[in-house]
Amino acid sequence: MNLLGYFRAQRNKNTASVAKERLQILVARERAQRGGPDYLPALQEELLLVIRRYVEVDQDAVQIQVDREGDCEILELNITLPDHQQGR
């Protein structure tokens, strides 16, 4: 590899791994939502609104997914609070 090529490689070194990481997160989330009940997105929106009455959280702070175990459906709810919780 010549010098120019070396610098070019340095600059772009991480774009593919950034792409992979973003995809892994996104695909995992979309798979979790897939096949779930139709009301999940609306439920997620409303939960976000309620939580935001008390804590300022990010758009993606509420994660919902439905797991099935036999006949049983489990609604899993994950809420990420910010580092410094500030009530309103």
Partner: peptide, 16 residues
């Protein structure tokens, strides 16, 4: 381009 880290590799896509 994969070698230069600019493109997802076959292994990356396969894994996802």
């Amino acid at each position: 381009r994969v070698k230069r880290g600019e493109m997802l590799s076959l292994e990356d896509v396969g894994e996802i």
